[in-house]
Simulated scan of single mutants.
Amino acid sequence: MKILVCVKRVVDYNVKVRVKADGTGVELANVKMSMNPFDEIAVEEALRLKEKGAAAEIVVVSAGPAQAQETIRTALAMGADRGILVKAEGRLEPLAVAKLLKGVVEAEKPDLVILGKQAIDDDCNQTGQMLAGLLGSAQGTFASKVEVADGALNVTREVDGGLQTVGLTLPAIVTTDLRLNEPRYASLPNIMKAKKKPLEEKDASEFGVDLTPRLEVVKVAEPKARQAGVKVGSVDELVSALKGAGLV
C-alpha cells in the first residue's frame, strides 16, 4: 500500500499569535513556524502502518511557499520516504488546496491519503472532505483508530454521540483526530538523513487550478479580554447577580 500524507506549515502552537497593526491578518514575520499538529498525527499513523507491514511507501506533500520545504523535511526525518512541494504564494483556501492535492493524487495514485482533520491557523476542517468529494473516494473523518483488514480500512470516528466505526474500501481519505496517536520525535541522525531524501518541487500552475481566494478577510482583531469574576456570599446573591446581567 502506498500512503500520501498531506502536511501544512503553520505558526507553531506554542507561539502567541499577534494581529497585524492594520488588522489585515496575523503577524508571520520572524515567527516560529512548524507542522500543523493534526498533520503530525497523520504522519505518525502512516509510519505505524508501514511498521506493521501494511504500507510500502510514504509520500509527504505540502502546498505553500518555498519555506514549506522545512515542514516536509520534518516529516522525512520522522520516517517518510520522499516529499513533494507544490509551490504557491499567497493565501490558499481549502478548495484550492483540495484541487491541488487532487492533481498530486492522480499523479501518484496512492491507496490511502491521510491528513489532519483541520489546521490550527484557519480551523476550516474542510480540505479532507473536499478532496474525497473531488476524487469520489471513501472517507473516514475525525479518526481515533485506523485498522487495516483484508485490503480495506476500519476507521473509528469520534462523533457527537460517542464512537462510530466505518469500513472503507481503498483508495480512501482519512482525516486524523487528536486521540489517534502520539507523534514521535525525529532523532538527530534521522534529521541528517532527511536532508538527502528526495524532495520534488512542482509549481501550482502545472495543475491548472485557480488559486484566487473566494473569501475576503474584512478584519482580524484580538479577542476581547475576559472580565474579572465577582464573588458572592450566597445563592440569593448569585441569582440576583445573574438576573442583573440578564442571564436568567
Rank of each mutant, 00 (worst) to 15 (best):
I3L: 10
I3A: 06
L4A: 11
L4M: 14
C6S: 15
V7T: 05
V10R: 00
V11N: 00
V11R: 00
Y13G: 00
N14C: 00
V19C: 03
V19I: 14
K20Q: 13
K20G: 05
D22L: 03
D22S: 05
G23H: 02
G23Y: 03
G25T: 07
G25F: 06
L28Y: 08
L28T: 11
A29S: 11
N30Q: 09
N30E: 07
K32N: 02
K32A: 07
M33F: 10
S34N: 11
P37L: 03
P37G: 02
D39I: 02
I41S: 03
I41T: 07
A42I: 02
E44S: 04
E44G: 04
E44K: 04
A46K: 05
A46I: 03
A46T: 03
R48I: 02
L49A: 12
K50D: 01
K50L: 02
E51I: 05
K52E: 15
K52M: 12
G53W: 05
G53L: 03
G53H: 05
A55F: 07
A55Y: 06
A56H: 07
E57T: 08
E57Y: 01
I58S: 00
I58Y: 00
V59W: 01
V59P: 01
V61S: 10
S62Y: 12
A63E: 03
G64S: 10
G64A: 11
P65E: 11
A66N: 09
Q67K: 08
Q67N: 06
A68V: 11
Q69N: 14
Q69K: 14
E70D: 15
T71W: 15
I72C: 06
G79V: 05
G79I: 01
A80S: 03
A80L: 01
A80T: 02
R82D: 01
G83A: 09
G83N: 06
I84C: 05
V86M: 06
K87D: 15
A88N: 14
A88W: 10
E89I: 08
E89Q: 13
L92F: 05
E93T: 01
P94R: 12
P94V: 02
L95Y: 10
V97M: 09
A98S: 14
K99F: 06
K99H: 10
L100A: 14
L100M: 13
L101F: 15
L101K: 09
L101D: 13
V104G: 14
V104L: 12
E106G: 08
A107F: 01
E108A: 15
E108I: 15
K109N: 12
P110D: 15
P110W: 15
V113Y: 10
I114M: 13
L115H: 05
L115C: 13
G116K: 11
G116C: 08
G116E: 11
G116N: 08
G116Y: 13
K117A: 04
K117P: 00
I120P: 00
D121K: 09
D122H: 06
C124R: 14
C124H: 12
N125P: 00
Q126Y: 09
T127R: 08
G128I: 07
G128P: 06
G128S: 07
Q129W: 02
